[in-house]
Design a protein around this nucleic acid. Structure first.
Lengths: 189, 189
DNA sequence: ATTTTTCATTGACCTGGGTTAAGAAAGCAT
DNA sequence: ATGCTTTCTTAACCCAGGTCAATGAAAAAT
């Protein structure tokens, strides 16, 4: 079993082959076209996601303008705030490429927990990890200038620069595409 | 029992008077002078905090410059990343006023859990809340200009503007004190 | 009370990012 | 291939926030 999902789960729990078989049996995978919207602002979602292949991004629409807050790639879980709070979502989730995504619903999660109770241990661990990385993300944003943020991204996630159109990178860095062009030009020297 | 700590706990669990008595018995409260540093960059902490009275702020020191990331007031828990990860802290925690703070250690937490097992249910709930509010904080910062962030703060946490020196507010908004002065002047008109 | 330190404001000038508009380059569909 | 659309770059101009320096006000220390 070399499913990316087990690669991810192994960070938290060592699963037996039997348990993996149960999970494979229950999991619900979908192929989605580029541009598919997984979650719309205003909608309340009952699903969380795990990316097997492809790339997803989250963004706000503020006065008609896209404000990107995150990119998600292979082996990353996506737990929308709306999934946790059961409140309407403030932001969108959209496929940036053709994607293969494992979808989680409360029902399937319950079934999983029932058949593989040890999985319940993962919840708080994942939450802790998420919280720590979310704080680091905020703090990094605060500490750095747009130019420094670009360098930081280049350093820490170079693959994103290959994969994602620059106008979305710019938005993610909190600037306009024109400014990112200028920053890149400046840095070449 | 009108201890602020029970006010806080009641958001998650209804405690019996008996349970409250046990908690009161175990909890460890300290009075701390303004300027006391609860956590220093580079130190790994074994303690988390709950503010009974006073105000605490967290900040990074970047090239000698303070970058404030959060203010904590009465009835707020503070769980340092370092407490979770057991890694050296990236930021400082300091008392902005004379404070009365309840200190949590792994030992006391374990004792609490043992004597009031239901408290364990709170952990994941608090984590979820923390995660949601941390995301909202990040997203708000990204979406708004410095001036809008000031208005947002005025709207949502006016008490902070009364309580906290402006140069720290400025840092929290991601700008210099001079700029905050100008923004305020602009807005008066 | 008085001195010292810290904090807030103001003004002059600088700079990096925003805006607008145009053209070039790269993807995509037919 | 050939258009059509999307994305990227460049240039000119504007402006909010940064920087530096001076002054004033308030708080702390003695």
């Amino acid at each position: 079993m070399d499913d990316p999902i087990f690669d991810f789960l192994s960070k938290y729990i060592d699963l037996t082959e039997e348990e993996k078989a149960i999970i494979s049996d229950i999991k619900f995978v979908r192929s989605l076209k580029k541009g598919t919207i997984l979650l719309r602002q205003g909608d309340t979602t009952n699903e969380c996601f795990f990316i097997l292949k492809g790339c997803v991004y989250s963004y706000y629409l503020v006065e008609g303008e896209i404000k990107v807050t995150e990119f998600f790639e292979e082996k990353q879980p996506i737990t929308p705030v709306s999934y946790i709070t059961k409140q309407p979502s403030e932001y969108y989730l959209e496929c940036l490429e053709d994607c293969i995504i494992s979808m989680g619903s409360p029902e399937r999660t319950a079934e999983l927990m029932q058949k593989v109770p040890r999985l319940a241990l993962m919840g708080p661990m994942m939450l802790e990890d998420e919280l720590a990385s979310q704080r680091i993300k905020y703090d990094t944003f605060i500490k750095l200038s747009p130019e420094q943020r670009y360098l930081h991204l280049q350093e820490n996630s170079p693959q994103l620069l290959e994969r994602i159109p620059q106008y979305l990178i710019a938005s993610y860095l909190g600037i306009k595409p024109e400014s990112l062009s200028r920053i890149r030009k400046r840095l070449v020297k």
